[in-house]
Design a protein around this nucleic acid. Structure first.
Lengths: 122, 122
DNA sequence: CAAGTTGTTCACATCTTGGTTACGTGCTCG
DNA sequence: CGAGCACGTAACCAAGATGTGAACAACTTG
């Protein structure tokens, strides 16, 4: 406590309608706390700290799991999935975690209606 | 945060409303990330590094694919097409990749303004 | 110890890419 | 003008990457 006592507030990362408070082990959407496990929150945090940038699986794994990723390890993908489900549930219509094939994942808040694409009648 | 990662310098190539960050594996238009595959991004990068200059297919192929182009190989054309589609979708009304018959391709940002009047607006 | 939660791993489903080919379209020049 | 290329475009496919559900282990809590 002594070392950080002078810091009155904790780190807050905002990504669109999402806010993440790593030191509080908390993420909020529209004021409501998300029910995330530790791993899920850490993954979201690391993605959010580099929002708009593509992060390789290996880098994410290193940051979240604290060790080197073994080839073929799918843990990152599985947790990305868990996060996506919970984020979709908390904020329907928003998309946050974007896959960049062959590279990794990128966090960015995108709302479905803001897209340029034209979805004409089916 | 990881001190070294954020201090790293990243090449940024700007072509009109387009910005390309080769080391980030990312290209953006109006701040929004484009979803490009590896090949597409590399082709766009090499074109952008020599913007306004005509590049022969053979040269592009050598730079992007890393080997000599076989006679009759249409890969460059096919990927130019893929890029054009994605660029048009991201930035309607802009044209970037220009064909120089018998020579190759040239990248340059051009807006459809000097041309005929258009009836559809954004 | 029982019950619930979280982490890890696996198998299978689905999607994307890159390379290729075939064919349509349009340019150039005889 | 019309033949012959050069280029545009769509479709195809195999390999590989990613999405997804679930089983199981490890852990926590009461």
């Amino acid at each position: 406590m002594a070392a950080t006592a002078d810091r009155a507030f904790h780190e807050v990362i905002e990504v669109g309608p999402l806010e993440i408070l790593p030191e509080e082990h908390l993420a909020r959407a529209r004021g409501r706390a998300l029910m995330l496990s530790i791993r899920e929150l850490r993954l979201l945090t690391e993605l959010a700290r580099r929002a708009d940038r593509i992060m390789a699986r290996e880098e994410l794994f290193r940051l979240v799991w604290g060790r080197e990723m073994r080839p073929g390890d799918r843990s990152v993908d599985v947790y990305v999935r868990k996060l996506r489900v919970k984020l979709e549930e908390a904020l329907p219509g928003w998309r946050f975690i974007h896959t960049h094939f062959g590279f990794g994942y990128r966090l960015a808040a995108e709302h479905e209606q803001n897209r340029h694409q034209r979805f004409t009648t089916d």
